[in-house]
Write a protein that binds this DNA or RNA. Structure first.
Length: 113
DNA sequence: ACCATGACGTTTC
DNA sequence: CGAAACGCCATGG
């Protein structure tokens, strides 16, 4: 742990954006990374989500998928079908681990936020 | 400081 | 269309 109160952690930035994702909407790791200013740091976003369990409050990580709309991180939700279940609960269709009408549900922080 | 890891993305074969 | 390679950057050992 680095003691740098001046610098906000990259993680907190990601969490903050993810929390702002409206219900029934989804976004991608790359979109969040671009919003943070690092277009190529999409990996950091995903990695930050891996620490989401350490963040305060609940992080709707199920609303974050890769650019193809595939539930790449479904395996991190305890049950493999849990992520899909959460998405379907928000009127988001998921077929073959992929979101249907992905662009339709896509929420871009660069444009919306 | 160097090496390894990672819920990604793009390009190439 | 699928697999592999490279890039990308923060965090940990």
């Amino acid at each position: 742990m680095s003691a740098n109160p001046h610098k906000n952690n990259f993680f907190d930035r990601v969490y903050e954006v993810v929390r702002k994702i409206p219900k029934g909407r989804i976004t991608t790791y790359g979109a969040i990374a671009s919003y943070l200013g690092s277009r190529g740091s999409s990996r950091m976003v995903g990695w930050a989500m891996n620490h989401s369990h350490n963040a305060h409050g609940s992080i709707p990580a199920h609303r974050v998928v890769n650019r193809l709309g595939i539930l790449t991180g479904k395996h991190h939700f305890g049950s493999s079908n849990m992520m899909q279940q959460l998405l379907e609960n928000e009127n988001i269709q998921v077929v073959n681990d992929q979101i249907v009408n992905f662009e339709k549900h896509f929420w871009d922080p660069l444009k919306e936020l």
